[in-house]
Design a protein around this nucleic acid. Structure first.
Lengths: 318, 318
DNA sequence: TTTAACTATGACGTAATTTGTCACTATTAT
DNA sequence: ATAATAGTGACAAATTACGTCATAGTTAAA
């Protein structure tokens, strides 16, 4: 094998192993250790950040958790990656530390002139809008780490009206509409729950014994949250606009049925405790929805409507 | 310079220029043309997709619009890119052709074992949720291309109740809540407008003379859409929950004011023709909002409320 | 304290490779 | 035709790469 080829392959090998000895490489490439040493020095000069320690258990390492080997992107792929990263820029919190701007630059600088121009032209003409929220979510990386390592966290959570400590075992985190949520098993209530990440005041690892939830992840969410609670059958008719509005609500998608003319209906079982939420939701849909079932929901809607009626009546009656 | 180093630099050089002659490189690297020829052959063998044409104006090209820069990603950057691309996977339409899954694999396969494991653990524990819509937007790339090249399109657009041809000059496209929108200058109405991309039945370049809008891009949107039309002053009080709900609506963000206790208000001028939209929006906010001004809006809300009252009254009265 | 497992460097001769030059051929736009 | 390109082959000279051996330094562990 030619030297150049050996060097190129060595870059890859060195990045795959992150730790290796000279002897090891010598055997792998079937050259003498002296040659490997010379090669490694050359790689260093070429900019591969190598670092070595002498002594037993010493050896070479690649520095700074660094350097994935040269990856060949097509132009399309490069553009896609560029915009994917751009799409993240609206998020004020992310679970991994992002030198995204640094890396965008790196990406950008390596591209040939014409691709660069193309990107320049596109960058202000394509956008992925996400609501920018006031609320920060500073504990994302702790939560994610706990989900990965399956450990229990002791958190201080501020819900609607109360604030309290509880223990949770995170399953995963997700973002929607500009807010981050954590889906976790709550050791207090002994059930799965969704928490808003900006409402954690603190989150620290706890000593409590975790459950074995390795096989549970965000993909299991739908199954596990569906069944529970005290349910009631529910049916609402939707206009075409109503259908479109419901498509935007994750909870409603599994219940949604669409007719060929664009209209549709929602049908399924929902938890009784969510009725006040639904009342407000369907009032929001206005003329685009008509709830048929259950009676409780229609009652709640009527109640809400008359409350609002009062609110919007008084002052203008003057 | 050693041959290996020359080869590595040559890979970069060759990717930067996309077209070059042997002589050119010979001068750049200060070696003979014979050497360059040999080097290029070697690069070919190493997998760089080169292609050559003889004759005047001939020369070498790099094929398949490929980029092989030895980009060095840190682990963090790699993870960020991976998830950025993952975040795009919810979009059913994108303005560039995405072999995203192919490219994710490429990325994935190049990473060392441990990074791979880390990603495996994360991939089902982090998600970027975006509503999945029925509506496809097949003309995105045409629209984007028109925005970049500043040309006029003849489109067939289906709005609420009518369908018609019109000429537009796209400024840019953006996605929000799972739908794609195109912001464009409408030659028919002589004004800027937002179109829903899934409602374009067709879009083809037109011969009409484009306006000079080079300096206008998505960043200019706020300024240019603010002023127009017949406006009316508007004021609504919000509870803390109401504030959070308004943060999610892009139009309301510039009007939003937050007090230290979390409550707030919306204040500003809005177009009179949007009143029915606002009525429905504020009814949707229910008890979390109270519109003070203008009277027209309060009237529209009352009207909507009584319509709904009727809808939810009759049947249960039985 | 010794030993073994590492890296690190220098010197040197031989083997291998790289390089430039020169002499060709072939293709194609002008 | 001419000039600008790529592409090949051969050969000698120059350069580089390689292995071996000698030697030294560091450090964890026995």
């Amino acid at each position: 094998m030619s030297k150049s080829k050996r060097l190129m392959e060595m870059i890859i090998a060195v990045n795959r192993k992150r730790r290796f000895t000279v002897k090891e490489l010598a055997i792998e490439f079937d050259v003498s250790t002296r040659t490997i040493l010379r090669d490694l020095q050359e790689l260093s000069e070429l900019g591969v950040p190598l670092y070595s320690e002498v002594g037993p258990h010493g050896g070479y390492r690649i520095l700074q958790e660094r350097l994935l080997p040269p990856i060949a992107f097509t132009e399309r792929e490069a553009v896609a990656v560029f915009f994917a990263v751009q799409a993240l820029r609206h998020y004020s919190s992310l679970p991994f530390e992002t030198e995204t701007s640094a890396m965008l630059n790196k990406f950008y600088n390596f591209m040939p002139e014409d691709v660069r121009n193309r990107i320049d032209q596109m960058r202000d003409r394509v956008d992925f809008v996400t609501p920018v929220r006031q609320a920060q979510s500073p504990h994302l990386s702790v939560l994610l780490d706990a989900a990965i390592r399956q450990i229990v966290l002791l958190v201080e959570y501020v819900s609607q009206r109360q604030r309290g400590m509880r223990e949770i075992q995170p399953i995963g985190i997700f973002t929607q509409d500009g807010l981050w949520y954590c889906w976790a098993y709550c050791l207090l209530r002994k059930t799965y729950r969704v928490f808003r990440c900006d409402r954690f005041e603190s989150a620290v690892p706890s000593d409590s014994q975790p459950l074995d939830l390795q096989h549970i992840d965000l993909g299991s969410k739908d199954q596990l949250t569906r069944s529970a609670d005290d349910c009631v059958y529910f049916h609402a008719e939707l206009s075409a606009e109503g259908v479109e509005a419901c498509e935007a609500e994750p909870w409603s998608v599994p219940l949604l049925h669409v007719r060929s003319d664009g209209t549709g209906w929602l049908e399924g079982n929902v938890a009784r405790k969510d009725i006040s939420y639904f009342a407000s939701y369907f009032v929001g849909l206005g003329r685009e929805a008509a709830v048929q079932q259950p009676k409780e929901l229609r009652t709640a809607i009527r109640q809400l409507l008359s409350d609002l009626m009062v609110r919007y009546m008084d002052k203008d009656a003057e």
